[in-house]
Design a protein around this nucleic acid. Structure first.
Lengths: 225, 225, 225, 225
DNA sequence: GATGAATGAGCATTCATTCAT
DNA sequence: AATGAATGAATGCTCATTCAT
């Protein structure tokens, strides 16, 4: 029986007891993240998490009150996807909607396939766990609301049609990415990056065309013949 | 001793033992469907299914070899969503892509929120269950492939741009609906119908504009000022 | 690993499947009773009960929803002690209080030391388990109330003093037996019977003298010089 | 390095580290006492004791080798009840048995309901824990023996009947109080004091009458008509 | 003296599944 | 066809205890 990361095993400089324990905690979270994504929440036992993290089961409950607390901490901690979108939105300034959507899409390309898998997992779990659903729904609302509000400013600028449903656009734009992620989450990193980049650009372009005003459309097509 | 539902077997009246048992079987499937959608596959015990179906637990295993067999049968049996899409596609004839997308969208509106919940469940479960994933992936591929092929014919007809990525379009179009479904699955029937109809129409319109040729676009706008 | 009482092992005439299962259920209860008395409720694991009953742990939960349900069923089922007292009381008729207390005492002598141990266990557990306490308290109230009411009739008959606290008498009479039981529960059957009989008679006599009227006392002493 | 509380050690002021640690130790004992009484020994985790005492779990094991050691120390330390009885007995002198029993009863009235709860707990726990049982049994034997021996002297004085079983009397007298305590341990302090005083007096009186000689009885009744 | 990370055995309970009836 | 007794492995979680710091 191999002892892994037992206390006192490491006298390395970086490792005060407190630091060591923080690392262990993180290892548990990381292991849980990976296993949850692969087998789902209910399909992952705390036993397996402990094994994967090289830790005893009891220690998991030393750090986290319940298995669900582990899930919630993961949900609260990992926001890369929504964060990407919001960051891009906040830096919007007076850029065109087209540039914005492309920027968001490009940002999402940077997201790894693991991140995609995590989003797929969260969305799936949210369907089944009411308190997680609340968390996910509100996060989604923030992102969609952000997109809608930013696009609304571009309607006034004449770039987008006044009669387009921006809610539908935001919903569909986002949903398209989400579906893409869940469908391609099992790709390797290289293939993922390639496919994701291609899809992201084409999809951002189409969504923009879907809501662009005739004037903006023709202006765009003369620039890119 | 294998029981076969051969033609001669059904001379007995409708209330016969055979018919009774078929009904029971169906009740089990229905109960499983509902519980799976609400609590997920792993979150639903065979005991709860039995209770909900008004049947003993043992009987479930008389009808289905394993709990997973129940899941697979559900996956194979209930295809309303994908079926809707395919049916519309097959009847496409020479209708315009715009009409087609709107028809698909309208078809999806007719789908109940329960159906939407079922799709959400299947997609979620597929992330976790490899054999289900295969089934779902191939079903999705058929639907998306059908959309792409049908749209491709309309490129030749000049209605759609030749440089548009139809794969991205199909993916996004479909994904938009899926995301909408998972986000609104907890709505009551009336609200669902209203919201779904509004979204479906707007979304079909936008997706069409995203890939329409300039000629088709201007032709459309002169018709609907 | 010796198979004990497995299904199908017994083709004995008395043993239909239903009867067999009732027996098994009873075995579980009996094992639980014994272990609870020896190690307390919290100190007895369902594992040990299963082993002692020659049954798998799962089966216990097939019969009883929870470990606590086992406890409650035991509490509801085994009432020999209180039952003895009440039966004697109900048959009271117009017997003297002295005869009554002696009859109660004699009845309690018939109670085995196991029964005494069970009472000790219940009283102990009731201190710690609120719902069990409610049950025990109400059972005790019934018994004490019965004693008080029966004695009250003998006050009117002049056998007992009008100024004696019958509540205190009933409480103390009963409590004396209870304490005796808990103190002697580890005796063997023979020694138990001897000690119990001696104590019961002496104690009933003293309690009677404690509340008897002077007239009854002198009448008694002339009869038994 | 063994720390000894030798006389020279205590020259430090009252707030010294040593004093501090003694206080902490006492807090742990107090917390354990209260929790044990409420939830039983097995039903109280060291974690809860630590929380209630405002101390880390580890510290408990710094002071006490095991959880059981905590229990034993409590058993050895708190003897108010038995102490009361013995003190009264030792000061007996040539007082009458009647006065003695009333004094004992009065002494027990002074005992708080917490003390009553503690006795109930100890008696309950003794049924389950052999080494505690030994301790409790011998303590009980001392008290009961003390009562018996004191009463025996009053038999010679003619106050008590020669043919009365003093063992049964002592047992029952004590048991009556014990049962009263366990039945009323959940009363508030005021109600407790009232109820306890009433019961104690009535019970002591009855027990005395149960074993008093005819002469003493009539002498008593002429004094208190 | 005091902390709290860490352990490993144990807990009550749930589960899908089998099988005799 | 249908029951429900029975299994045995697994589950999330708690426990008393140890020990390096």
């Amino acid at each position: 029986m191999t002892r892994r990361a037992g206390p006192g095993t490491r006298t390395s400089p970086a490792g005060s007891r407190a630091a060591q324990s923080a690392i262990r905690r993180e290892q548990v979270l990381a292991a849980a993240l990976e296993l949850f994504c692969e087998h789902g929440y209910a399909g992952t036992s705390t036993r397996r998490i402990a094994e994967a993290a090289g830790v005893t089961e009891g220690l998991i409950f030393h750090y986290f009150a319940t298995k669900e607390a582990l899930l919630f901490e993961l949900a609260a901690q990992r926001h890369t996807f929504a964060g990407q979108v919001l960051t891009v939105m906040q830096r919007a300034g007076d850029r065109s909607a087209r540039e914005l959507l492309l920027a968001v899409a490009a940002g999402l390309t940077g997201v790894s396939s693991e991140e995609g898998a995590f989003i797929g997992f969260m969305l799936a779990e949210a369907q089944v766990n009411p308190s997680l659903r609340a968390q996910v729904t509100s996060a989604t609302a923030v992102v969609l609301g952000g997109i809608v509000r930013t696009l609304a400013r571009r309607v006034e600028a004449g770039e987008l049609r006044a009669d387009a449903s921006l809610e539908a656009a935001a919903h569909g734009f986002f949903g398209g990415f989400l579906f893409f992620f869940t469908q391609h989450r099992h790709l390797g990193p290289a293939a993922w990056r390639r496919e994701a980049a291609a899809f992201a650009e084409a999809w951002a372009d189409q969504c923009w065309r879907g809501i662009a005003s005739p004037a903006a459309l023709s202006a765009h097509s003369t620039k890119c013949p």
